[in-house]
Amino acid sequence: MTTKVLAIDDSRTIRNLLRVSLEGAGFEFHSACDGVEGVEMFPDVDPDVVITDINMPNMDGYGVIESLRNGPDRTSVPIVVLTTESSDKLKSRAREAGATGWIVKPFDDASLISVLKRLTGHVS
């Protein structure tokens, strides 16, 4: 079974990069361009792992995580934060919101894929 990824990022460039890396590694890739769209897409995509940006219009990454964790789905799928910062403050906020892990941009394919595999337990 392929691992389904839902990536939420307002940057087309980042979405493209993720798509190329992840599809290349055998993941099934879905993307949303802001938090609201991402939360809306979640039930339909039913992903194995969610990747979300923090700084986004309409609903930021913390909002996404909290909506997914506390919303009707109360999901426990891993949610990985994609961020350019790596400050402890950000990590602790993300963790409080319910994030499972984080990846620092710019990411390289190998570490991205390794994190996703580690968090999903799927070997694609």
Binding site: C33, D34, G35, V36, E37, P57, N58, M59, D60, Y62, G63, E66, S67, K89, S92, R93, E96
Partner: peptide, 18 residues
């Protein structure tokens, strides 16, 4: 918990949707 936590979702001013 960070007491200065920002609001959960930043609501956009005009375009409610993307």
């Amino acid at each position: 918990a960070d007491p200065a936590a920002e609001p959960v979702a930043q609501t956009a001013s005009k375009e409610a949707r993307g």
